[in-house]
Amino acid sequence: MEDSRGKNGSIFARAEEFLQAFKKGAEFTQELLKENEKLRFKVVQLEEESKSLSQATGSDTQKELVKKISRLEEEKRELLDRYREVESENRDFAQRYVEIEEENNNLANLYIASFQLHSTLDFKEVLQIILEIVINLIGAEKFGILLMDEKSRELQSMATEGIDKDDIPIIKPGEGIIGKVSESGEPYFVEEINEEGEINLLHPMVCIPLKIKEHVIGVIVIYKLLQQKKKFVEVDYELFTLLAGHAATAIFSSKLYSESERKLSTIQGFIDLLTK
C-alpha cells in the first residue's frame, strides 16, 4: 500500500515537473511570438524607411539628371546655332568661290583676246583675230569691221562674218547709228535683243568705236548673235571695251608696220637701182 502510495507520489511529482516545464515552454513560446511580432513590426518599419529613403535619393538623382539634360539641350542649341553659322559662312564662301572663278575666267578671256590681238603686226591677221574674238568670245554670227578713211572720214567695211563685205554701205560721218558712234566715240547697244527678223545693215544691235585715245579709227558693228547666245553678259561689255582700245591699237600698229615695210622695200629698190 505504502509502496503504491510512494509510486503515485513520484508520478505526481514528475507530472508536476512536466507541467512546470510545459508552462515554461508555453511562456517561452509566448515570448518568442511577441518577439517575432516586434521583429515583423520592425521589418515593416525598416521597409518603409528604406522606401522613403530610396524615394528621397531618387528625386535628387532625377533633379541632377534634369539639370544635366537641360545643360545638354543648351549645348545642343549652341552647337546648332554654330552649325547654322558655319553653314551660312560655307554658303558665302561657295558663292564667293563661284564669283572668283567667274572673274578668273573672264580675266583669262580678256587676257587671251588681248594677247592674240598683239601677237602679230600683219594687218590681215589682226583683222582675222578680231573676227575670231567676236565669234568665239562674244558669240556673234553676223558682224563687220569698218575702218575710217583718213581723208574722206568715211567708214568702209574691211572684214565681215556672216554677211558679204560689200553689202555694208560706206558710212559718212554722223550718218545713222554707225556714223554717230564714229563721231561721238560712244558705244551703242540695243536695249533688247531681237532674235527674229531681217537684219538692217544701218541698224546694228551693237556698234563699238575703235579708239586710240579719243581718235576714232573705225567701228565694229554686230547685227546678229549666234542662236544659242540669248543676251549679253558682263564679260561681253568688258570685251567691247577691250576691243575698243586694243583692237584699235593693233589695227593702227599693223597698218603703220605694213606701210613702213612697203616704203622700206621701195627705198631699198631705189638704193639698189642707184648702186648697181
Partner: peptide, 12 residues
C-alpha cells in the same frame, strides 16, 4: 582653226 579658241580651251 582659231588660235584664240585653242588658247581658250587650253586655259579651261
Amino acid at each position: 582653226d582659231s588660235p584664240t579658241m585653242r588658247q581658250l580651251i587650253i586655259f579651261a
